[in-house]
């Protein structure tokens, strides 16, 4: 501290001796350099210690459990008491714990929904004051305007946001649960055994699949190269539009192959759409207008190459398998 006074005093002396300006300037800069360094050192030390102090506070906030078991139980009780519809998490990384704690997520359809269309009721669980429409859920919702919240309930560390999207009605047809679904390939009809369709050229099975690093429940088309699978529903209850998705499972197969799949959709023998999907599209949505009422609906899927070329030639595994879902919905739409 005494050094500081001496420097200040020195600076003052120079200002009062204008007759020898050059000498004064030289002396001044010699005196100011250490002073400047001292101030700089003190400033840097203060900055570093301030950052450390902020880290103490941040550590106190970060290094603790914020979602105790009692909070999960209260949340489960709340959801059981009402009709939450599809329950979603604003934070997807909480899903394993949520599946363990919440009965609303015990339904296989709730843990890997194809999108948020055709859901008359939605419940989003967020933490505290977080925006329920997290980036993940906004992507799922698509380009439509976000619906207003019908109710907002604070439950300890959770906030339950309830929505009733206008005009949303449950699908009148779902490919995954269609009882009259018949599958055949070029060679023969594929018998259904235990939920799976076994064809000469492969297998089609409803299952969970990782597509673009998200869980989806869909019909996995595990078919030989060049096979053609025809999925026919003789009397599908169609709405104003048929909405579906197609994606490729899984990360390992996507790394080794990027071959596309051709999908043709026809109603009562009339082609509605010819689509080409590649794995770069992720969980690619498609939507076609349909005549409402009972109609014959046919999907024709033609995978190209499922395997990969490596230094030991072509290998059919791990298979680059497409996964398909489709639902008949009433009007509205234009989701992503």
């Amino acid at each position: 501290m005494s050094d500081e006074r001496a420097t200040a005093s020195g600076g003052e002396v120079h200002r009062h001796v204008p007759s020898d300006i050059s000498t004064a300037n030289a002396a001044s800069s010699r005196a100011e350099a250490p002073d400047r360094l001292r101030r700089l050192a003190r400033g840097v030390l203060a900055l570093i210690l301030a950052v450390a102090a902020i880290e103490w506070i941040a550590a106190a906030r970060a290094y603790r459990t914020t979602l105790p078991a009692a909070a999960w139980r209260a949340l489960d009780d709340h959801l059981r008491a009402g009709d939450p519809g599809l329950v979603l998490l604003a934070d997807p990384w909480l899903a394993p714990r949520a599946r363990r704690e919440l009965a609303a997520l015990a339904d296989p359809g709730a843990v890997a929904p194809p999108d948020l269309e055709g859901r008359p009721r939605l419940t989003i669980i967020a933490r505290g004051d977080d925006d329920p429409w997290s980036p993940t859920l906004r992507r799922e919702w698509g380009a439509r305007p976000l619906p207003p919240a019908r109710a907002r309930t604070a439950l300890g560390p959770f906030t339950v946001h309830a929505f009733e999207p206008a005009g949303a009605a449950a699908p009148s047809f779902d490919l995954l649960d269609a009882p009259g679904l018949e599958v055949s390939d070029r060679r023969a009809r594929c018998p259904r055994r235990g939920g799976a369709f076994t064809c000469k050229s492969g297998e089609l099975r409803p299952r969970f699949a990782e597509i673009a690093y998200a869980p989806r429940r869909c019909l996995l088309l595990d078919l030989e190269d060049g096979a053609e699978a025809t999925l026919r529903i003789a009397d599908a209850e169609l709405g104003a539009r048929l909405r579906g998705h197609l994606g490729f499972a899984d990360f390992n197969a996507r790394l080794r192959s990027d071959a596309p799949l051709l999908l043709r959709i026809a109603v009562d023998g009339e082609p509605l759409a010819d689509l080409v999907f590649s794995d770069r599209q992720g969980w690619a949505a498609f939507e076609v207008p349909t005549p409402p009422g009972r109609h014959e609906l046919v999907f024709t899927a033609i995978p190209t190459l499922a395997g990969t070329f490596g230094d030991q030639g072509y290998r059919p595994r791990p298979a680059h398998s497409a996964c398909l879902e489709a639902r008949a919905l009433a009007g509205g739409g234009a989701g992503g």
Binding site: R64, T65, L67, W93, P96, R97, R99, R100, L105
Partner: peptide
């Protein structure tokens, strides 16, 4: 099943 019976977590993160 889709629900785990036990979890290892660190500060709520499975």
């Amino acid at each position: 099943v889709q629900a785990p019976v036990e979890l290892v977590e660190l500060d709520d993160v499975p």
